[in-house]
Simulated assay, not measured.
Amino acid sequence: MADCFWVERTPVHEAAQRGETLQLQRLIESGACVNQVTVDSITPLHVASLQGQTQCVQLLLAAGARVDARNIDGSTPLCDACASGSIECVKLLLSHGAKVNPPLYTASPLHEACMSGSSECVRLLIDVGANLEAHDCHFGTPLHVACAREHLDCVKVLLNAGANVNAAKLHETALHHAAKVKNVDLIEMLIEFGGNIYARDNRGKKPSDYTWSSSAPAKCFEYYEKTPLTLSQLCRVSLRKATGVRGLEKIAKLNIPPRLIDFLSYN
């Protein structure tokens, strides 16, 4: 397929967005360019992916659409499919070679999946090698995004896969985000996975400094500050750190009682 010039949205873009597969098929058969980019470098594959139009994505890819085309923000169709939470589009793009890890300092497909709250997408991306510590200059790591948006299912998947619970964005950790959104369940989950309640951000503040006195989140932090973690919990965190990224597979193979495997797997 030949390169195309920048234009406003084309009939191919419109058909792809609306999921008009017959119209899109006719346009392709009549020689329409599937790699036509708008002034924002958005291709028809971007819009089809963002709308979760799986059949249109299939048609465009079969017609030679660039699977890793980048728009003006650096997003690929895979990023857009993750933003839509369309697991079928994600699988289709991956099967056509879409890159799961873009260059550093841009939002990755994993960031987008965490933003949309699709834990199924998060799990799939991790399974195919997504970088858990991909760092976006605005959002930080995928864990930062999932915590800021309070997507607890995504947070659990990331942490269980070995995401660094204390990764920092301007010294701000996921626990700082959890404190700011006042989510006790999130705070407890992060601490159980080894979150440092004493970590200080670039303003010198601990997570608890972002809670209101006597509020449930404040009482939660106060409890953990006064109550040392149990030896079993400290051992769990240490062993999980030792197993590293995607450590669950290694833990499942240990020659130890099933109850211990469940404990180490946070089941």
Rank of each mutant, 00 (worst) to 15 (best):
M1W: 15
D3T: 12
R9M: 12
T10W: 09
G19W: 00
L22E: 15
L24Q: 04
I28S: 08
N35Q: 10
Q36P: 12
S41V: 09
I42C: 09
T43M: 10
L45P: 06
Q51K: 12
Q51V: 01
G52T: 09
T54Y: 08
Q55G: 09
Q55N: 13
L59Q: 13
G64W: 07
I72C: 13
G74S: 06
T76I: 03
D80S: 04
A81H: 01
L92P: 01
S95P: 05
H96A: 07
P102L: 01
P103Q: 03
Y105Q: 14
A107P: 00
L124Y: 06
L125I: 08
D127R: 15
L132I: 02
D136M: 01
D136W: 02
H138N: 09
G140L: 00
L143T: 01
A146D: 00
A148N: 07
A148T: 08
L152Y: 14
C154F: 04
L158G: 03
G162I: 01
H171R: 11
A174Y: 07
A174R: 01
H177M: 13
A178I: 01
A178L: 05
K180Q: 13
K182Q: 10
I197Q: 08
Y198L: 12
N202G: 04
N202H: 13
S208N: 10
D209K: 11
Y210P: 03
W212R: 15
S215L: 07
S215P: 09
S215R: 11
S215I: 03
A216G: 04
K219W: 10
E222I: 09
E222L: 11
Y224S: 08
T230V: 05
C235S: 15
V237C: 08
V237T: 11
L239E: 05
K241S: 06
A242C: 13
I251S: 04
N255C: 12
I261L: 08
Y266N: 00
